[in-house]
Design a protein around this nucleic acid. Structure first.
Length: 830
RNA sequence: GCCCGAGUGGCGGAAUGGCAGACGCAAAGGACUUAAAAUCCUUCGGAGGCAACUCCGUGCCGGUUCGAGUCCGGCCUCGGGCACCA
């Protein structure tokens, strides 16, 4: 078969038949298969995309053959930083370049031969889409889930612009190598933390990889602890020569039981109290320290690379129980964004505090001792135990003490039990051009006003100078930025920032089923039928951010009354990553991006698809190597040959070998052949079906290979082989769709084969007369015996004992115990 | 540093706590062919043995178990994520 010609033929035919078209009238039997859409970057569709999309399409076709009305859409996440950087470098407008890339990738995707419903295509940078992203923003704003606050950005001191984390290399700007500092700007946030609790507990019911759920749980990072108030002492006020009325530091701790061991208090360098309480003497060093800390990322700050550092503010606070005077320090290991941005330093029972106290000579007081008899006096001591040096709490076990100590404060208003989360609100403002404009107008009289829906979309203007020079690109576009207030009509200014591209991708799965809707983001009635997504396929790198944002958005829209389901993705699969040949990530800078086009041109897309599924463990991925692709091509040719042979047997009665002048003359042998072929066929059907459900494509193909091998072993081309061939074509169809479609026609079938039913195995065909079980003596295999399947433990044991080999092995030994694993093994313990 | 994974023949990879290495690649031998390619058949973790068979073997060290690639504890190496790459 000429694969390339054949593939072109069927792609056209499928388009004619609207094979990928989703029939909305049959939403009851819908199956929504979704692959993460791709970013239309400069190097187009690479092998990694193919690896995501081709096997997923195999799964979708399998589901279609199981009778589901499959919906499989495709689109592009087309706003983003790389397009803008490319534009800065080349002068080509991001819109031009992005649209060019999309057109090319669409063509490549069509070569893949996937069953996409192109009528549902979504392109996030298209006004017909981002209009509704803006609508979503306004809805969140009205619901109180979007708000503004000061937050740090990476600021390149030389380019005079905000740069992304990715562009910061070793604390310096990747472009100009100058120093990067953190600078506060007013930015928009989504209140994802309002949903922290639900995002956490809903994970339990999702059919997602356990590791992904664990990662999200840790990312949300719920921890139950206490907030405890330390008051700034009067002396501090005196030193500052300013009245500091009732200044207090609220610390968050999960170890209230160690309160008596507190020897100092630490504020994050960015803590608002720092400037107020720093004594004049310490001002210079505190300012210097704050500046140094602003240059470090959170990872560098909390990392264990260097020493713990910090400086004394000159201020003191009072221990809430002992009334001791404790110094207040600032240290970068305390993060402003977690807890209250302040911690109590308990060197004896925390490793970081211990390092810090040792370095700066702060007192270390042990307040928990081990409750075991063996004396462990090494510090820091992190384990459980009972309190000591803790006044009235001495002798209480530390878990009880946590509650008791906090409860003591609760009455006085000086502390309380508090649940905190590592999860932070989602920062969505970007000081960039190529993104969705934020639909907010600032009016001198009315404040921040969302743009009315009838005025959406707020179009991203074309003629903008987006070379970095210290300002958000849109703020330099006069005709964009200057507008009138939608409420009072007076002159006003638009928000000059654009939205994080994760906002665009946090709801695209809701747009697909109603992508052409021009009056709404989506029709709730349709969406409530079409979602949740039945199978979502994409890379594990999105475990925490994209997947969490999409879940948040779904819950927020539900609470606004637009959706009636709680979770967007019922079932999730991560494909592994296809690495470069050397085992490193495929990227332009590594110069190891593998383009699938050369392979589709040489072997055809079916062969490439088959190879990707057979050569890798789908969820593991691995380094690319083309050594196996030839084997996949050979296998497909082998399939074609046996199908040709089988077709010749169409009218040859099974067992009538002699008429044909070949094959065995013994009629019995033919019958046995038939049974063996039948067994192989149903064994394959059973396992391929199961493996496809599990996205275990490599083992599914292995079972098909075994079936093909069994067909070659079959004595002659007869009707039995012919019928086996017919089933094989259906079995293999999702894996090599173009090929199977053609073979089906050759076999007299009607196109499309994907409207046919996937084969179902017959359990009766899988009943074996004899099975082999292993006989172990002291857990070492000594021999194997054949027995009937399903024997009782006693029957298997006595069958084993009558075997000559077993007798030999057990001769002269006393059997103490016999362990039988049904249909697997017998183990004699002697 | 923190969170999450992974480590099995020369290679890609299989194995609900129960016969490690399915299936395939590469390699070797054979058949067919004038020859090559293609195809078909056979062998293929290591060591020993004529053989039956024996011993060793799933990154390292220890543990649980009649039995561990699989479970537990401690390491080592690699990969992903760490909130402005998407």
């Amino acid at each position: 078969m000429d694969y390339l010609k054949n593939e072109e033929k069927w792609r056209k035919e499928w388009e004619k038949q609207h094979l990928g078209h989703f029939d909305r009238s049959k939403a009851d039997s819908k199956y929504y298969v979704l692959e993460m859409f791709s970013y239309p970057s400069g190097f187009n569709l690479h092998m990694g995309h193919w690896y995501n999309y081709a096997p997923s399409d195999t799964f979708a076709r399998f589901k279609k053959m199981q009778g589901y009305n499959v919906f499989q859409p495709m689109g592009f996440d087309s706003f983003g930083l790389p397009a803008e950087n490319h534009a800065i470098k080349t002068g080509i407008h991001p819109k031009v370049n992005t649209n060019k890339n999309i057109a090319f990738m669409e063509k490549q995707l069509k070569t893949l031969g996937a069953m996409y419903d192109w009528e549902a295509e979504v392109i996030t940078s298209d006004p017909s889409y981002y209009r509704w992203t803006q609508w979503l923003f306004c809805e969140l704003y009205k619901k109180g889930l979007a708000y503004q606050k000061q937050a740090p950005v990476n600021w390149c001191t030389s380019c005079n612009t905000v740069i992304a984390n990715e562009q910061v290399v070793d604390g310096r700007c990747e472009r100009c190598k100058s120093e990067v500092v953190r600078k506060n700007l007013v930015q928009w946030f989504f209140k994802i933390t309002d949903y922290a609790e639900e995002l956490l507990w809903c994970l339990d019911v999702l059919d997602w990889p356990e590791k992904t759920k664990t990662m999200q749980r840790n990312w949300i990072g719920r921890s139950e602890g206490s907030e405890i108030v330390f008051e700034i002492t009067g002396e501090t006020r005196l030193k500052n020569k300013k009245p500091l009325e009732n200044e207090k530091i609220t610390v968050f701790t999960t170890r209230a039981d160690t309160l008596f061991g507190t020897s100092y208090v630490v504020l994050a360098p960015e803590h608002p109290l720092v400037d107020k309480i720093t004594s004049p003497v310490q001002k210079t060093v505190v300012e210097e320290y704050k500046y140094a800390a602003s240059k470090l990322s959170d990872i560098e700050r909390t990392g264990d690379k260097g020493d713990k550092t910090g400086v004394f503010t000159g201020a003191y606070c009072t221990h809430p129980l002992t009334k001791e005077k404790l110094p207040v320090w600032i240290a970068d290991y305390c993060l402003a964004l977690y807890g209250t941005g302040a911690v109590m330093g308990v060197p004896a029972h925390d490793t970081r505090d211990f390092d810090f106290a040792k370095k700066y000579g702060l007192p270390i007081v042990r307040v928990i001792k081990t409750d075991k008899n063996d004396v462990d006096d090494s510090l820091p001591f992190i384990g459980r135990g009972v309190l000591t040096n803790s006044g009235i709490y001495d002798g209480i076990d530390n878990e009880t003490a946590k509650k008791q100590i906090t409860a003591g404060f609760e009455k006085k208003g000086a502390g309380r039990l508090k649940t905190t989360y590592k999860l932070r609100d989602w920062s969505v403002s970007r000081q960039r051009y190529w993104g969705c404009p934020i639909p907010i107008v600032y009016c001198g009289h009315c404040g921040a006003v969302p743009v009315p829906y009838e005025q959406l979309p707020v179009l991203l203007p074309d003629g903008v100078n987006f070379t970095p020079d210290g300002k958000s690109p849109l703020s330099k576009c006069e005709e964009y930025i200057n507008t009138t207030c939608p409420v009072c009509g007076k002159a006003a200014k638009r928000d000059a920032d654009t939205l994080d591209t994760f906002v665009c991708s946090s709801w695209y799965f809701l747009r697909y089923p109603d992508a052409q809707n021009t009056s709404k983001a989506f029709n709730s009635e349709i969406i409530n039928k079409m979602l949740p997504v039945d199978k979502y396929v994409g890379g594990p790198e999105h475990a925490c951010m994209h997947l969490l944002y999409a879940r948040f958005m779904t819950k927020a829209l539900r609470d606004m009354g637009y959706l009636s389901f709680d979770e967007p993705f019922k079932s999730l699969i991560h494909q592994g990553m296809i690495l470069g040949e050397g085992g490193e990530k495929m990227s332009k800078s590594n110069n190891n991006v593998v383009n699938p086009d050369a392979f589709t041109k040489e072997y055809g897309s079916d062969v490439l698809r088959l190879f990707l599924m057979f050569g890798f463990s789908y969820i593991e991925g691995g380094p690319w190597s083309d050594t196996g692709i030839k084997a996949s091509a050979k296998f497909l040719e082998r399939v074609e040959r046996i199908l040709d042979t089988a077709l010749a047997g169409r009218n040859v009665k099974s067992g009538s070998a002699q008429e044909n002048g070949r094959g065995p003359t013994d009629g019995k042998k033919t019958e046995n052949d038939d049974n063996e072929l039948n067994y192989a066929l149903h064994y394959a059907i059973k396992n391929v079906t199961k493996d496809l459900e599990d996205f275990s494509f490599n083992t599914a193909i292995a079972r098909i290979m075994e079936l093909v091998g069994a067909m070659y072993k079959h004595s002659q081309p007869d009707n039995r082989l012919y019928r086996c061939g017919m089933t094989l074509i259906k079995l293999i169809a999702p894996f090599v769709p173009h090929f199977a479609e053609e073979m089906n026609v050759i076999y007299g079938g009607k196109s499309s084969i994907f409207n046919e039913k996937y084969p179902v195995f017959d359990p009766a065909a899988l009943i074996k007369q004899k099975i082999e079980i292993a006989v172990q003596v002291n857990s070492k295999i000594r021999c194997r015996i054949d027995v009937e399947p399903g024997l009782t433990d006693d029957a298997v044991t006595s069958a084993a004992l009558t075997d000559e080999n077993v007798k030999k092995v057990l001769a002269g030994l006393t059997v103490n115990k016999v362990i039988v694993v049904r249909d697997k093994l017998v183990n004699f313990i002697v």
